[in-house]
Design a protein around this nucleic acid. Sequence first.
DNA 1: CGGGTGGTTGAATGAAATCAACTATGGTGG
DNA 2: CCACCATAGTTGATTTCATTCAACCACCCG
Lengths: 254, 254
Amino acid sequence: MANAFVEKLKGYAPLSNEEVKLLEEVSRHGRRYASGQDMIREGDKPGVVFVVLEGWACRYKILPGGSRQIISFLMPGDFCDMHVAVLDEMDHSIATLTEATIVTIPRATIEHLTSVSPTLVKAFWWTQLVDEGVLRATIVSMGRRTSLERVAHLLCELSFRMRNIGIANEEHIEMPFSQIVLADAVGLTPVHVNRVVGKLRRAGALTVTPATLIVANLSRLAEIAGFDDNYLHRRISYAAGTASLKSIAERLTN
Amino acid sequence: MANAFVEKLKGYAPLSNEEVKLLEEVSRHGRRYASGQDMIREGDKPGVVFVVLEGWACRYKILPGGSRQIISFLMPGDFCDMHVAVLDEMDHSIATLTEATIVTIPRATIEHLTSVSPTLVKAFWWTQLVDEGVLRATIVSMGRRTSLERVAHLLCELSFRMRNIGIANEEHIEMPFSQIVLADAVGLTPVHVNRVVGKLRRAGALTVTPATLIVANLSRLAEIAGFDDNYLHRRISYAAGTASLKSIAERLTN
DNA sequence: CGGGTGGTTGAATGAAATCAACTATGGTGG
DNA sequence: CCACCATAGTTGATTTCATTCAACCACCCG
């Protein structure tokens, strides 16, 4: 079985066999978690980096009033910042959204990796850069898009990201979470999200089943959202072939 | 006059004299820009890193409908991601909000710096970590806070950041931008922001003058916002201690 | 002096939250 | 095996909040 962590990083930099072996080694011992488990909570002292190998997780924050805001989604291959281990205190929590297998890598191991391989450092930076782009796009959505666009935009983003890592294809894109979770992510109430989802369903963009949404027509969804995937900075189709491989190498070393 | 860039990084890692000298060298030739100038636009190929030495700037994005969302504020010492220079295309724009002096550092120089000093790499990472925390906090605000809390929260954040870099003290915190800019940052219309600002003014938290807001009572503002500055990750091993004190002393005497 | 920018206020409209009720489903314990 | 409960989804009526539209003021600057 492919290791999502290694695959993702391979997509961001041309890794040597040794580097691949190193990464596989440190991400071998994934542990299985139930859905809805907190991995770490706001206020905790972070000592490790979490890497999602399978399943979904999210970063979130609970406000004094009890409401929850989901800040970002983590899917296979995603990890929380490599240098979070250096912080004194978490400013948000991380929890599983589905059953998931997750690796925890101690800070010392990360430091070993980065000291051994500058290429890995750059790969980590790259992924972090993309993560920031996603956060910025989220801010734009929350600030200036209608609820319909906002929901559609998030689902588009997740669809593209799923396809990028090969856990979805054109015909079958399944989001394994409830409308309640979706509401916490887009900053709306569940009932209003339900109405919006209903619109998207009637537009033929979605189909709905309990606790999972299925994207039926991604291009229609993208049209509604005004979606532009430039911020995912995908290009680097490294996996596609050697030509791009060279250009990546160039880009990273120059 | 103190160099905001160097001061900021000194706050995040214990730098040697040589490292300080290096940084001063690369950030010496600041250029002066008028207010409201675009430094770089969405779609441009980024080739340099921008460092704000004096004045304010912001990242923003214009939506198809013409509305603007300000994603984050840049104040003296802030810079756009060190590795943005590796991207193919900007996914947002950067513009000045006031008259400002800004340095542009070419990518090669950055790579030189990071290859020469691991300490600098860590300092850069740290600042980026803080930036991400700010983005996450923004998402939480936009998703789950009322307009009053949202405005108050942003002004609190900016106040704390200004104090951290010594451009504001308890009694006098001046935000050099109009309510229109504020509206673009919090995702509301200018007229509604005006009503909210009115409330804060009547609560004694703010005073208002054309194109600048003045925080009159930060603790009242923080109370209204439910503000907790933990996400700014100020303390760190090092910054809380002698370095920042010393640098402030310097700034006051020069 | 006139025009631009920023600010302020009121009235109307529209969007989303709230409150409330009801369905469907799957799982659990008696 | 069924009764019950918890979770998720759905729909309608009402209220709250923010936008929109519109008018007007104050000020600085050319």
